[in-house]
Design a protein around this nucleic acid. Structure first.
Lengths: 339, 339
DNA sequence: CTGTTAGCGCATTCAC
DNA sequence: GTGAATGCGCTAACAG
């Protein structure tokens, strides 16, 4: 391997000079710079990143912590999309992206510990949130630079996080349904311990209440995310004395299952039941019917979270701990107006 | 930061002894091991991974190169799934996973160059293949340990790659369609410069030929992957003098678009047209109709490719350059038998 | 069994 | 402007 010393010898100058040329130090004459650079090219020199990181006491790499690899929610295109946003911005800032996971929560914790304590990464992005997450406590206790995508269950004012205003989003989409003449609306949510689910449902209820529509417990159904593909949810709906004329579904992915199950039971969307959901993943547009959904700008969630971690690891100030990405409704064909 | 020296001082022994304790060297007395470990715990010592990597001349991290982040194919759940397989196995072998990409091909090349020449990773997994890919030439020229997921366009016998037997898969699924009584079958493929597309189509043709069914050019349609969601493809079909009674689609994702477009035109799957495709992504099961598709075991593709790179960077022998993951057909509801 | 020495490849202080 | 010396934190000879 060709090192800084080799090219020092080749050019007849000292290693420190070479190092300065690499850093493009202004106190080096143009002449020697040229000479040194020529030698670097000829000998095929390339700086050893590990050595550099060691002295710099920084790796310029950010770890992204995914849900446990067993978690079925990983199937959600949401993750590829945030990852794309994160990767794109990190790269533009010359940072590397380390993808970390683990089969179990314990393994994941060990991995985070290894990376943080071993100073292998400068910052961390958490792509999920769990109640009483030991990783969270650990990171806080270490005062390690990290940000979370989504809303933390605890310490909300304390943890830097990038999120949508999901309460508002839930309210907005529900109001839209109401404005289209729907009166009997049911909410179908994913895992109940996810803040997104809770927030969106909260917005849903607010909208109903403000519109003077009744909110019965019956009107909220939770379903195992992905597992049944919303099958159970639909079965519950079918058993209702009066069926809803519209449903708000907390995730596009669940919508797919809901629609197909509905169809199997001879119910058409939006013919018999209107449906609106959240995320606006790629599929929402190509499936039939195309989904009216809240675009939460997943890519931007990724970009902003990486902007935030980079700020944190470079000791820059953040204006706020809670960074909100605006949402908007994409109107497509899963909702129809009733007279 | 607490280093090896600190705990050396604290225990009154030398740094090397501490280092040996970390490595659990057998020539250290149990007594001092205990003592040293106690000190490590008390002072909160953790080995600095960068320093360790520097002397080890290895980082135990593998870079996964994704398609350009602009590439729409990234939307394909295929990637999350291979990534999951790769991550899971790498982690089990104590390797880290660096996710690398770039906005353009040039940027991606620069990034790979930086990582390889900078010795920041021990090996590379390529998640795509492009004709005349400079990255490929570079890696080969550097004799850097890398494997590719999918079949390389060139140097097929020369590049370690993990793939399905897509020709066979194409043949199998087509034969199944034929066995169900279908006679006029059309192939709908994604990007024509992808070897998967080519191979699957090849298998398709073979099956037709062997069954004595005619193969006209007309029977093969290529569509922009994801872009139109198979819309164009369907429009071409609708213009045919005699419509096919079945289609083989080269990717589940395209199927979704094809089915929904077909429905918009009043054609039902499998009622009017049977459909079968490849990959068996999560959606295939929950959409309506559920897809009869070739399960290519995406997760395993990931696992095997990481097994292979690890072997390569640890100088182990590989039995073969071409590692084949077996496929199987998953029979669901998008195909019906005709009399 | 343990300590001493050296060095991984680079950046940075201090001299000149 | 440039060089010499020092150290980042760790491991690996070589001694003893």
């Amino acid at each position: 391997m060709v090192t800084i010393k080799d090219i020092a010898k080749a050019t007849g100058c000292s290693p420190s000079t070479v190092s300065r040329v690499i850093a493009d130090n202004s106190r080096i004459s143009e002449k020697t710079k040229q000479k040194v650079r020529a030698a670097m090219r000829e000998l095929g020199y390339h700086p050893n990143l590990t050595a550099r990181n060691l002295v710099a006491r920084s790796t310029k790499t950010i770890a992204v912590i995914m849900p446990s690899s067993a978690d079925t929610s990983l199937q959600n295109p949401f993750f590829s999309e945030v990852l794309r946003g994160i990767g794109s911005h990190l790269h533009s800032r010359q940072f590397s992206l380390l993808l970390a996971s683990g089969a179990t929560e314990t393994e994941k914790f060990k991995e985070v510990e290894r990376l943080v304590l071993g100073k292998y990464v400068d910052g961390i992005i958490l792509l999920y949130s769990r109640l009483n997450d030991p990783i969270l406590s650990f990171l806080k206790e270490q005062e390690f630079p990290f940000v979370m995508v989504g809303k933390p269950l605890q310490y909300t004012d304390d943890i830097v996080h990038v999120d949508n205003d999901n309460i508002m989003a839930g309210k907005d989409i529900t109001e839209y349904l109401i404005s289209q003449g729907h009166k009997r609306i049911t909410f179908i949510g994913g895992a109940t311990d996810l803040v997104v689910t809770i927030d969106r449902e909260k917005g849903f209820e607010t909208a109903l209440t403000e519109a003077g529509l009744p909110v019965t417990e019956d009107e909220v159904i939770y379903t195992e995310f992905l597992k049944s593909g919303g099958r159970e949810a639909v079965e519950k709906i079918l058993k209702m004395k009066t069926k809803p004329d519209a449903v708000v579904v907390s995730d596009d992915l669940i919508s797919i299952g809901v629609i197909s199950t509905l169809e199997e039971h001879g119910l058409s969307v939006p013919g018999d039941i209107s449906l609106a959901s959240f995320n606006n993943i790629y599929f929402s547009e190509i499936i039939h019917p195309s989904l009216t959904t809240v675009d939460i700008r997943i890519y931007e969630l990724g970009v902003e979270s990486s902007k935030a971690v980079i700020k944190l690891c470079t000791d820059q100030k953040l204006d706020t701990k809670r960074i909100i990405i605006p949402h908007s409704i994409v109107y497509r064909n899963s909702v129809r107006a009733v007279e």
